[in-house]
């Protein structure tokens, strides 16, 4: 459709609260070697970027959310945050 637009999507996936994050905890334990104080609450996750073609912002968010919920994150142990940004008009 000529009216479709391109959107840039970022999906951040993190382990849910209560799910052990040994990677984040290990990174946090390495911090003292930097000589810094006051850095805490490290959580390790994944970031994904892709583009979607959609009619509007809501449509783009809906499509990206399907990708996040059905593939990028396992809802049993992970949660995702989807951010959509318009890129311009496609085709």
């Amino acid at each position: 459709m000529a009216s479709d637009r391109q959107f840039s999507v970022q999906v951040e996936v993190l382990l849910r609260d209560g799910i052990a994050d040994p990677q984040g905890a290990t990174i946090e334990r390495a911090l003292p070697a930097l000589g810094l104080d006051g850095v805490s609450g490290v959580r390790a996750g994944k970031s994904f970027r892709f583009e979607v073609t959609a009619a509007d912002d809501d449509d783009a968010l809906a499509r990206a959310t399907v990708v996040a919920d059905r593939l990028l994150a396992n809802p049993v142990i992970e949660e995702s945050v989807v951010t959509v940004r318009p890129l311009g008009t496609a085709g």
């Binding site: 382990l15 799910i19 052990a20 040994p22 990677q23 290990t26 396992n74 049993v76 142990i77």
Partner: peptide, 17 residues
């Protein structure tokens, strides 16, 4: 099988890394 929804739950990283 858990990812496919044929069994419940998930397998997360081992305790203790």
């Amino acid at each position: 099988l858990t990812e496919a929804g044929l069994l419940p739950g998930a397998l997360q990283k081992n305790r203790g890394l």
